[in-house]
Simulated assay, not measured.
Amino acid sequence: MRALLVVNPAATTTSARTRDVLIHALASEMKLEAITTEYRGHARDLGRQAAESKDIELVVALGGDGTVNEVVNGLLHHGPDPDRLPRLAVVPGGSTNVFARALGLPNDAVEATGALLDALREGRERTVGLGRAGGTPGTADEAAPSRWFTFCAGLGFDGGVIGRVEQQRERGKRSTHALYLRQVVRQFLGEHDRRHGAITLDRPGEAPVTDLVLSIVCNTSPWSYLGNRPLYASPQASFDTGLDVLGLKKLSAPSVARYGTQLLTSSPVRGPHGKNAVTLHDLTDFTLQSKVPLPLQMDGDHLGLRTSVTFTGVRRALRVIV
């Protein structure tokens, strides 16, 4: 088997020595080409080259959720075709690794490599659904490029949090859960003029859902992790269905405390709920529109401000080694 290993040298939880050990372990089982990323978007370019190759059967992403997202967007540059495209495998190296953990992989890079090799020997794989988001025709954002996401997206509050985290990381701060929590507080304190709904969700054949101030789109569950604690924003979300949405219509201090507590104590059967919470399951096509430009994030990557984003849930988009 010929495989491409895409290595993010800045992966938060792996050292150069660990990465060398993992590369040797993988190379002992397959014909492996390992390439270290050198710029933002490099993993996407490598994924696209692998998809266009005639002999690469497997692409392994060694890094965090951002690296995985780039590889996936490269593999699916010409659209989903799971029977033709190389399979994807993930060795987690980031601070959270939501996609890998949602697939049931160990959160340790060495253990995950062992599990990956076992899965390849035993032929274990699954075909997962993914989300896609892009500009809405007829709006100011219609030219925005379409992009795939593996586990979540968000327009509004959580997009702002991700933007703040990226600013801190550019200043040399390390990506930690404490950093995220600090930015959640700062985003809340800085949102005085946007705590009442500016977002509308439109979907074919249904009445619009209006007055949302927060919108989280989930392609799987859990939505994220706080350390080892899974956070279930949309417990029913699954790689085998369409997209789920959690929307909130109020972000006052009491409601933030209530929903934050519900999120911290959430489970696979119960997520945030209440009169100002909107939960929608298994959506295929919908649009989020805002009266004012709001920050957009996908898989923890801040993508700037948008007033309208169209989402599509695509079932059976990519084969993944599990």
Rank of each mutant, 00 (worst) to 15 (best):
S146P: 09
N73W: 00
I56F: 04
Y232D: 02
H302Q: 11
L283Q: 12
G114P: 00
A89V: 04
L130H: 03
T210W: 08
L231D: 03
A27D: 10
A25T: 07
Q262G: 04
L117E: 03
L248D: 03
V314S: 06
S290F: 02
E38F: 09
I35S: 03
G190I: 10
A277R: 05
L288H: 05
R182Y: 11
S255A: 15
L103P: 00
E122P: 05
M1K: 11
V269W: 12
F188Y: 15
S234K: 07
E38G: 12
R169T: 11
A34K: 03
G304D: 05
S290C: 08
E125F: 12
P145K: 12
P230G: 12
T241G: 04
R124K: 10
L181G: 10
D193W: 10
T312D: 11
V269Q: 15
T279I: 10
R229L: 15
R19Q: 13
S15G: 05
N97L: 11
S266I: 09
P145V: 10
T279K: 09
P230R: 10
A50L: 02
A119I: 05
L248N: 03
L226W: 09
P235W: 04
Q262W: 07
R203L: 13
V245N: 01
R319V: 06
R171C: 06
L231C: 05
P208Y: 08
A100R: 02
A16M: 11
A16L: 13
A143S: 13
F311T: 05
G63C: 09
A27E: 12
P86W: 06
L263D: 07
G63L: 10
L214H: 12
A16T: 15
D282C: 01
P92Q: 07
A178C: 10
E142P: 07
K54L: 13
Q49G: 07
R2L: 13
A43T: 01
K249Y: 02
T36M: 08
D55N: 12
A133I: 02
W223C: 07
G271C: 06
V6K: 00
E142M: 11
T307E: 14
Q289D: 06
S15C: 03
K173R: 15
S266H: 03
V209N: 01
V185K: 14
L280N: 03
D282Y: 01
A100T: 02
G271P: 09
T113Q: 08
S252F: 07
R171W: 06
G159W: 08
L75I: 01
R258D: 10
R169M: 15
G64E: 01
T176Q: 01
E70N: 02
L22F: 01
A11N: 08
R169P: 02
A277T: 09
A207G: 07
L105Q: 04
E191H: 15
G131H: 01
T220C: 14
P82K: 08
K173E: 15
V213C: 15
I56Q: 04
F99V: 02
V269A: 13
D83M: 10
E206Q: 15
E111R: 14
L76V: 11
R164Q: 11
A153F: 03
T200Y: 14
G138D: 12
V6L: 08
V322S: 13
D244F: 14
L318V: 08
G135F: 05
M298S: 10
